[in-house]
Design a protein around this nucleic acid. Structure first.
Length: 504
RNA sequence: CGGGCGGUAGCUUAGCCCGGCAAAGCGCCUGGUUUGGGACCAGGAGACCGCGAGUUCGAAUCUCGCCCGCCCGACCA
């Protein structure tokens, strides 16, 4: 028996070390987080996965409410006329938008084969004179609407957010990471000055960092995107970037400064203090269910998920162990006051399913539940419970008295160790190549982050992408140590330091 | 969107070349024995063979079209 098998590696889960992509898909489906739906590129988020999303939502929602943001809701469909107004934005999103061009009045019972003929279209009832776009993001509907509500500098700032779904017609899809439809939040804010909008962008980015690091235990790098990687229509884009356990980067949240680009296109004007008409300064920012994919890939191991406690739907799984009705009753009686005490303090589940303990252990292990409590006759006799840690796999006995406090502390500690492990992993896979050849060698052999000086020229960046399959992730705000003053690729004077990596 | 591969019971697949009773393991249900790391025995249910056309006396099997998924390349939260 190998070491891994002794530790209870799931029977049908592909090992992470053997095939990371396969492992990822296996884990998500075996843990019942999500599944494909039969609709191309669109997934079903199952209760265990959705519970994670709800916890992430709550964490972020609380943060932005604290700074005065309010939730609202805007339509799923955007009139074509609105959508096309900001040229750069349209160009960026056009390839992946879906259109609605037909609606009623006749029920569609058979595929409309004749509609391929453009001339016939116009004659048939139901073809929309003004086609609708299904939102890939909502700038182009929120702009024209907000224009009506913004007249004076007294109407600013407007700090809006909406939780919704969006649609992007993706060709290569993967559960949570890239699906045609996904859930996210999109914030849209309107300001009287360029500087205030800039502060907003950074504040939200800091909120994203907090969600990633303090809730999901995923260390991230905050920074600014290059011209090539920025959001279509933005003046600049900032992001948080995380490293997955295969060394690839994942963009986990973005925050954009639009300057006056969108307010110019949508005529969002206000009268300033000097009673002059001025265009508003706007921002937008988003974080999606992709975060859940990041959580899986940042912390998982050969045995499945490892859940960060603060967003774990189940933090403690309790497995009662008994031989017969008598010992069952004894264990339940022992458990009753304990679970009463735990209620409201930790998210726990007593697994009373009619199954063997070993099967239950495996069940909760692959789901990444941080702590597992085994409570059997031996424990009852000793007035204790046995707790097993998902990360270290250590088994320890805890006295029944003061259990809630003890578990709460262990969950906090678990979060810290998980974060540290992810951070250590990132450090071990972060490089500082000194030459073009070194950079090439890194990605010939493997993956990871490479910090390097860069000229910030589009041609140069595209060349690197074409030759190495590596893109710039961002230009970190905090750069430690010395870097050369020449671009690592072309040798021209460097303008910035960037992180290069392959990415999801 | 191009190149390659696949879709047969809830899941994983065999059968397909060479057309002729749809099969196995896991899972599920019932009963029994078990229960501190994925149990065992016995019985049972479960399939429009991805969808649609065609060839044929006969199609899971051959042909064409479509849909869905996976892998590899061009675009992306």
């Amino acid at each position: 028996m190998s070491e891994l098998e002794e530790q209870g590696v799931p029977k049908h889960l592909t090992k992470m070390s053997e095939n990371f992509d396969r492992w990822y898909t296996d884990v998500i489906r075996m843990t019942e987080m999500a599944d494909w739906s039969g609709v191309r590129g669109m997934m079903v988020v199952r209760p265990y996965g959705y519970a994670m999303w709800e916890l992430i939502q709550r964490a972020f929602d609380d943060l932005i409410k604290e700074s005065g943001h309010e939730n609202a809701y805007f339509p799923l469909m955007i009139p074509h006329e609105y959508f096309v107004k900001e040229a750069e934005h349209v160009e960026g999103f056009a390839p992946e938008v879906a259109w609605v061009q037909y609606a009623g009045p006749k029920p569609v019972l058979t595929p409309p084969t004749t509609w391929t003929d453009a001339e016939k279209r116009q004659q048939e009832e139901g073809w929309l004179a003004q086609p609708l776009v299904i939102r890939p993001t909502s700038e182009t509907i929120i702009g024209p609407v907000m224009k009506r509500y913004i007249q004076s500098h007294r109407d600013l700032p407007q700090l809006l957010n909406q939780w919704c779904n969006v649609l992007r017609w993706e060709m290569r899809t993967r559960l949570f990471l890239r699906t045609a439809e996904f859930l996210w939040q999109e914030g849209h804010t309107f300001h009287a000055t360029h500087q205030e909008a800039g502060e907003e962008v950074l504040q939200i980015l800091e909120n994203y960092r907090e969600v990633a690091e303090e809730w999901l235990a995923i260390p991230v790098v905050k920074g600014r995107k290059t011209e090539v990687e920025k959001f279509a229509g933005a003046e600049y884009t900032t992001s948080i970037e995380a490293m997955m356990r295969d060394g690839l980067a994942l963009q986990a949240g973005t925050s954009h400064h639009f300057g006056q680009n969108f307010s110019r296109a949508y005529e969002i004007e206000f009268s300033n203090r000097e009673n002059q008409r001025e265009l508003a300064y706007t921002t937008s920012w988003g974080m999606s269910t992709r975060m859940i994919g990041g959580l899986v890939m940042a912390h998982g191991d050969d045995s499945g998920l490892v859940m960060p406690p603060r967003v774990a739907p189940v933090q403690v799984a309790i497995v009662p162990i008994f031989r017969d009705d008598d010992s069952r009753r004894t264990v339940e009686e022992f458990l009753a006051p304990l679970t009463a005490d735990l209620k409201g303090r930790v998210r726990f589940k007593v697994d009373r399913r009619d199954d063997r303990p070993g099967a239950k252990f495996a069940h909760w292990e692959i789901r990444g539940v941080p702590l597992r409590l085994e409570v059997g006759p031996r424990d009852v006799e000793a007035g204790q419970v046995t707790v097993v840690d998902r990360l270290s796999r250590e088994k320890t006995a805890l006295p029944a008295a003061g259990l809630a406090e003890r578990l709460t502390a262990m969950l906090e500690d678990f979060h810290g160790r998980l974060y540290q492990r992810a951070l250590d992993f990132r450090e071990q896979h972060t490089y500082r190549p000194k030459s073009k050849q070194e950079l090439i060698d890194i990605y010939k052999q493997g993956n990871g982050f490479s910090w390097a000086p860069f000229c910030d020229r589009t041609e140069c960046e595209l060349e690197i992408k074409a030759e190495l399959g590596v893109t710039t992730r961002n230009q970190p705000f905090k750069v430690e140590g010395e870097f050369g003053d020449r671009c690592i690729w072309c040798g021209d004077p460097a303008k910035t330091v960037v992180i290069f990596a392959r990415s999801y």
